[in-house]
Amino acid sequence: MRPFSYERASDVQRAVIGGRETRQGQTDAPVQFLAGGTTLIDLMKLDVLRPARVVDIKGLKAAHASIEATPQRLRLGALASMAATARHPGVLRDYPVIAESLQLAASAQLRNMATLGGNVLQRTRCPYYRDTSWAECNKRDPGSGCTALKSFNRNHAVLGVDDSCISQYPGDFAVALVALDAAVELTGPTGRRMIAFETLHRPPQGKPNVETTLMPGEVITAFEVPAGPWTRRSLYLKIRDRSSYEFALSSAAVALDLNGGAVRQARIGLGGMAYRPWRAKEAEALLVGRPLNEGNAMAAATAALAGARTHGGNDFKPELGRRTLVRALLQAAAMEA
């Protein structure tokens, strides 16, 4: 850990001014925002993040932590804690996939501390990123190479990767958001804008150090999830080596609108599989108008993982991903919604 200066932003304008040099989420950006601190502080202690200045935005809680569920949409303040969101009655009733994605993440202690905005920007758990004694990491040190390509890579991504980086996006909540066509509200130097959540995280494209499409100084202030006939019949299935307190080996966020036995609309997000929060639109399209049976679920899952690229240790992942999605789809179809 390196010495750094610390300042508190009491409102979003001050945060934006303080955050002018946050760049686009790069590891070496000289300024980092601090909310729950559950990733930032760890990575600073590990000497991975070395900000000269940390801008604490917990003061934004007063204005940006409310949760509002209306017939049209769900609006989540970015400073709301994971725990508060997971137990919100409106979220539990109408968006079970969101509640479950949060309940199954991290530990109770972490969910109490961590904010939604910080959670979606959680950095990868790639061990070669998190330990500076591994010299090659394009995300941490652009151009240095990717250790994971040739070393132990059991839980590395198989979708959306390239040869510059196969690290996995570790979060759960973002997988639910991407499935449900969420939008993210950003407040920055030029004011407020809404973007599709799907576009928040960049593909690696040879530059995995640039992680987001955030403009310098921008703070996530809210998420908006449009209501739809599918949100009640939704769930998050997370497969992992132990029962709790672990990142996904594979997960699926599924939301269905059924018309009798047939699928009217489907929303599918995949976790534990991809470089960034992953939407499986090919799989959704295959399901529309068809009954949700084993065969159609498997066809959708096959389409979802069709582009998978594996690197030895994670050769099992496409199969696990397919099975996870089939299980999630059949389980969602059987829900009373």
Partner: peptide, 19 residues
């Protein structure tokens, strides 16, 4: 490299109560 990769308690798995 003959290096230990998962040298921390997040990646070196031990059971939690739920297990």
């Amino acid at each position: 490299t003959a290096r230990y990769v998962n040298d921390n308690l997040a990646d070196y798995l031990v059971p939690v109560n739920a297990d």
